[in-house]
Design a protein around this nucleic acid. Structure first.
Lengths: 137, 137
DNA sequence: TATTGTTATACTCTATAACTATA
DNA sequence: TATAGTTATAGAGTATAACAATA
């Protein structure tokens, strides 16, 4: 196979649609998944913070947060000093879902990853970092 | 950063939205891009073939092919023996666009890739193969 | 009866635009 | 004036369902 961008695009497309299909059957969408894990790692954040981190518009993040709130996975609390801001934090339910996802039992992606060899996993995580950098170029 | 699936999902999400933004400004969508490169590598295919290869439904591929046809990048011709099938092939314009994309001058992704070191590129392509396999698990 | 393709319709995700409230 | 958030609306991409033509 030739070494050009199309190869990556094809792979990304396949994975994307696979994730989307999983989301349709009770799992979370890509952005919801990312927000949940970010809140777990970094603690409470505002919607604007999340939008910047995930590369979406604030309005779009508003929709995502509202969906997570509807599922009782996150909750919003007024900011201590700035009346405009709302702090978004994981609920107990959200935290426990996040833990379950990490333990490789909950999502097909985590399961699939667990079946790879250590070397392949390392390649993927290294690529993840490069891709994140690439996406910001 | 922790080594779990969320990291990959975040990176994929960032790249996806970046590609989508590029598509909005005259470049091709993910699937259109993938179809163009597949036709270049494998020669004329039917819509059903393409749908299977890219992991989308035949109806969705029909829409994609129609969009490419509208842009005069592909053309359809009746199958020699099977009256149901339509062979989809690159036009001269489609082929020349595909060549331009490969030469790293045309899309932001190809440009961004070209700026990476050889080792990073190799990591990405290796990951691409793993991801494609993962997506079919 | 199975397969290829088309048409109609709906859903998800994200975008842009316009607005309110607070800083 | 700038920032955080909300609401309304639109677009892209893909899905499901129903159908026609051909094998």
């Amino acid at each position: 196979m030739e070494r050009d961008a199309a190869e990556l695009v094809q792979a990304i497309g396949l994975l994307l649609r696979r994730i989307r299909a999983a989301a349709a059957s009770h799992e979370l969408s890509l952005t919801e998944y990312a927000v949940l894990s970010r809140l777990d790692k970094q603690g409470p954040l505002t919607a604007a913070d999340l939008a910047r981190a995930e590369g979406v518009r604030p309005q779009s993040m508003g929709t995502t947060v509202a969906a997570l709130e509807e599922m009782r996975l996150v909750e919003r609390a007024p900011h201590a000093t700035d009346g405009r801001q709302m702090n978004i934090a994981l609920t107990a339910k959200g935290l426990s879902l996040r833990r379950a996802m990490k333990s490789a039992k909950h999502t097909w992606l985590a399961q699939a990853l667990a079946q790879l060899g250590r070397k392949e996993q390392e390649t993927l995580f290294a690529a993840g970092e490069i891709i994140a950098r690439l996406a910001r170029m």
